[in-house]
Amino acid sequence: MSASSLLAIATLDAEWRVRTLLPLAMGWSDIVSRLVHDEGSWVALIQQRPGRGTPTPLPNDILFTRALLRSLRPLDIRLADHVIASGKERFSFREAGLL
């Protein structure tokens, strides 16, 4: 994952619409507290790459996604998708079969 990437966890409603966006910069303990308080069961990882680079995941993106999956499991929260957007293009881990 590039240091210049913007990352957020989106809490989703039952139809997988975004309810809230929690920037990862706010810290993991604050994010976990909000996720537990929200009582949602689905989240999505949203990654915005500045510029017009490719949205293809890097090895660190895949490792981070796997670590996030493991961290959410004990909270009974599931990862709906990890979407990487760059310019007008996007990459979906779910659509690519990586989740």
Rank of each mutant, 00 (worst) to 15 (best):
W42Y: 13
G40W: 00
R73S: 10
L79D: 15
L45A: 09
S71T: 10
V43W: 03
G87F: 09
I77Q: 03
L75K: 11
P59H: 06
S41Y: 04
P59D: 03
R66Q: 12
S41K: 05
V83N: 01
P55G: 14
G87M: 10
T54P: 04
R49M: 05
L63H: 09
A85Q: 15
L72E: 08
H37C: 07
R90V: 08
F93G: 00
E89P: 02
L72K: 05
G40H: 06
F93Y: 01
E89A: 14
R70L: 12
G40A: 06
H82S: 11
L68D: 08
P59Y: 07
H37W: 06
L79G: 15
I46T: 04
S86T: 10
L72F: 09
G51P: 01
Q47G: 02
T56C: 06
D61L: 08
D76C: 06
L69E: 14
D76A: 11
P59T: 04
A44Q: 08
L69K: 14
S41I: 02
F93R: 00
L68V: 09
T56A: 10
Q48L: 15
I62V: 10
V36Y: 00
W42G: 07
P57N: 03
I84F: 10
L72A: 07
N60D: 07
N60E: 10
T65W: 01
G51Q: 04
R49H: 12
L45I: 04
A67Q: 10
R94A: 09
I62H: 01
R70Y: 07
L58I: 07
D38G: 04
R70I: 08
A80S: 14
P59F: 06
L45N: 02
D81F: 00
P55F: 14
R78L: 15
F64M: 09
H37K: 12
R52A: 13
T65C: 11
I46D: 12
L63C: 05
N60M: 13
L35I: 00
L69S: 11
D76L: 07
R66K: 07
S92Y: 02
I46G: 01
D81V: 02
L75Y: 11
I77L: 02
S86K: 11
H37A: 15
L63Y: 06
R52S: 14
F93D: 00
R66I: 05
H82V: 13
A80V: 09
L63K: 12
E95D: 13
R52C: 09
I62Q: 02
L69Y: 06
G40F: 01
A44M: 09
